[in-house]
Amino acid sequence: MSDCSAQKCNTDEFYNVVLKLTKSCGELIKSRTSNRSKKVETKSGAIDFVTETDQEVEKLLIEGLTEAFPDHKFIGEESVSSGAHADLTDAPTWIIDPVDGTMNFVHSFPHSCISIALFVCKVPTIGIIYNPMLGQLFTAQRGKGAYLNGERITVSGTKNLSDALIMMEFGTSRDPEKRRVILENQQKLMPQVHGLRALGSAALNMAMVACGAADAYFEYGIHIWDIAAGELIITEAGGVVIDPAGGQVDRLSRRVLGASSQELAEQLAKELTQFYPERD
């Protein structure tokens, strides 16, 4: 048996440990959501917030998982922001966004979540997205389906752009070219789709596609920790995750498109004006 195959056999143990840690961290986030006096910093001059809660949750997750699985690796949003590299290798690697939707969290807007995934041999194996404010727990293990609060979920199966509710984000970038592309795509899509929505969290946008509440989501400028859990949850719910221009998703390209069907994904990709951020 290869090292990768052997590691995959332990996923139930990995899942049980990370689920318990995630729920515990969710209680911490929930207890601080209504506190409008949160200590907030910005990253690299952009409107990109980090709070003490982001840092504390990531620390608790990494410490708890390291204690249980000392040989596992980590890619964490706050760790990378502090200078660590986002290197995805064959080693079991936990990819963590401690508070996805930090701006929402800062404003007590109840659409923030913990997003955590385990990749083994560069393959998504476990995915958890937990919004403790609304009690939404999305989970998936590779080959075992996707679930919301323990109930199995599936994508909508929508195939036509005209019938689709599309999730997209305006983001916080000050890059004028990116802003131009976002607005151009909004103007292109508005007359062609059923509707456009944004929750302010990449992970929760992907979760909405997975449970059939939305039909597709795309974004430029995200990072691997924003989408790692959502990728598995969408695919285990029967959907697809591709590059926004079509073809296989590159998880370090900072680009993603998730959809309820291959047909819808391809239609959407053909309509989009593309933008290529600097890679992770």
Rank of each mutant, 00 (worst) to 15 (best):
I129L: 07
Y147C: 03
V181I: 15
Y130Q: 01
G135I: 01
T154K: 14
A140R: 07
Y130A: 00
Q141P: 05
D163F: 01
K178D: 07
M168C: 11
S173N: 09
A164N: 02
I128L: 14
G145H: 05
I182M: 11
K122T: 12
V120M: 09
L161T: 08
K122A: 11
R179N: 12
L137P: 08
R142T: 06
V123C: 09
K144Y: 11
T172W: 14
D163G: 03
L118I: 05
T154R: 14
Q141E: 15
G135M: 03
G145R: 04
N131F: 04
L134Y: 02
R180N: 05
I182E: 12
G157Q: 03
F170D: 06
I129G: 04
R142E: 15
Y147F: 15
C121R: 06
R174V: 04
F119V: 06
Y130V: 00
N149W: 10
I126C: 10
L161M: 13
L118V: 04
G127L: 10
L165Y: 06
F170R: 13
I166F: 08
G145Y: 03
Y147L: 07
D163L: 04
V155N: 07
M167I: 04
K144W: 01
S156D: 07
G127H: 06
N149A: 12
R180L: 11
D163T: 05
S162N: 13
E151K: 14
I153V: 15
E177M: 06
R174H: 09
E151I: 10
N160D: 09
I129C: 08
G127S: 08
K159G: 01
R180V: 01
T172E: 07
T154F: 14
G157L: 02
D175K: 07
G127W: 06
T158I: 14
R142D: 14
G171N: 03
Q136I: 01
T125S: 13
V120R: 00
Y147V: 05
D163Y: 01
G145T: 04
Q136P: 00
I166T: 10
K122R: 15
N131S: 14
